[in-house]
């Protein structure tokens, strides 16, 4: 049974220059207890997708539509996220679906103590008195490995290190053991040494609370560590889908292959870093055919004419490319 079921999600932003096509028909599903990652460069629409799942995009300027946009809560009820009112969403957020954000230093309110910010979750969702909430807060802080939680609870965010702040955000998101945890690049803003700890903590929390995980990242190392299944996104479209081992060892889309090639290998000495030529096209100015065509090493005339569909290649592999792997690597 799927926790999150998205079919053909499209998101637009209305700006001064016209509509920006942020997400163009994306199918994503997250199973019970499954850990799914969405990978892509910045600006490919992955964060927008995650915010849309929480219904946190302001509309206007954002407009969205989908064939299916369902979330199944723990009691088995199917919620259509498209038609939910803001009030109904309040009962889903934090209780059933929660989110961890990118930069812990800007995502905590600077003028409230850590404790106050964590208390709120219990106060507004469990109707607790502040004192009672604080007991739970302290307990929660212990669970995410914050030393001396009583003292930390009375401190302000600027008094904590980045790693601790991210732990606070994790505590905040997982305190009501939601069914789905969305993590939007949770380690990008942290030191490398802290990253591993935070990833491990997220993994532990998911296992203990039986949460499904939707991880948004651009880091393939994080993907290998954290995910069971991977979606590769490019310019608002899914370009490849499959299990983590399949994708990382046998990429079928030129973009995925290029992404993997850009990761420097520690064991072999390379002359140069591999890079993907050009930049991600501006969302107002995407290529006519396949969106990756202008950067693709295997691009043909066909690719520049018409956007390929997402081919189903069996075994849960889907690839948005006209060519099968053998054909491609031949060229």
């Amino acid at each position: 049974m799927n926790v999150l079921d998205i079919k053909n999600l499209k998101i637009l932003f209305r700006t001064g220059e016209g509509f920006v096509r942020a997400v163009e028909g994306v199918d994503i599903h997250v199973g019970e207890g499954e850990r799914v990652a969405i990978v892509g460069e910045s600006g490919c629409g992955k964060s927008v997708t995650s915010l849309a799942c929480m219904r946190l995009l302001q509309s206007p300027p954002a407009y969205y539509t989908a064939d299916t946009f369902d979330f199944v809560s723990r009691d088995g009820t199917r919620h259509n996220l498209l038609t939910k009112s803001e009030n109904e969403m309040l009962t889903l957020r934090a209780r059933e679906m929660a989110m961890i954000f990118q930069d812990p230093s800007t995502f905590l309110n600077p003028v409230m103590t850590i404790g106050e910010q964590l208390d709120e979750v219990f106060i507004y969702h469990k109707n607790m008195k502040p004192k009672e909430a604080r007991v739970h807060t302290i307990e929660m802080m212990k669970k995410v490995g914050i030393p001396d939680p009583e003292m930390r609870a009375n401190q302000y965010p600027h008094e904590l290190s980045g790693g601790l702040k991210q732990r606070i955000l994790i505590a905040m998101a997982t305190s009501l053991s939601p069914r789905l945890l969305i993590a939007d690049e949770p380690t990008t803003a942290l030191d490398v040494t802290i990253q591993a700890q935070i990833l491990r903590l997220i993994g532990e929390r998911c296992e203990k609370e039986k949460m499904s995980l939707l991880m948004i990242t651009h880091d393939l190392g994080v993907v290998r560590e954290m995910a069971d299944r991977v979606y590769v996104m490019y310019c608002g479209k899914i370009v490849e889908e499959g299990t983590v081992d399949e994708i990382l060892s046998h990429p079928k889309h030129p973009y995925t292959k290029a992404l993997i090639d850009t990761v420097p290998d520690m064991n072999t000495k390379t002359e140069r870093f591999v890079q993907i030529p050009h930049n991600v096209p501006h969302p107002m100015n995407k290529p006519k055919g396949c969106y990756f065509s202008n950067r693709c090493a295997y691009c043909t005339e066909l690719c520049t004419q018409k956007q390929p569909p997402l081919y189903d290649r069996g075994d849960g592999r889907k690839v948005r490319c006209y060519y099968k792997t053998e054909e491609l690597w031949e060229k």
Binding site: L51, M54, L56, E86, M89, L90, T91, L92, R93, A94, R95, A98, M99, F101, D103, T106, F107, L108, N109, P110, V111, M112, E120, V121, Y124, H125, L169, M172, A173
Partner: peptide
């Protein structure tokens, strides 16, 4: 600001987000 997004993601009612988070800052 980002922390307003956090407050909303916590499932706080809009009036709480407005008075406790937005207004105070």
């Amino acid at each position: 600001e980002d922390y307003i997004l956090t407050a909303r993601a916590k499932g706080l009612p809009p009036r709480v987000v407005l008075y406790k988070h937005t207004f105070r800052n």
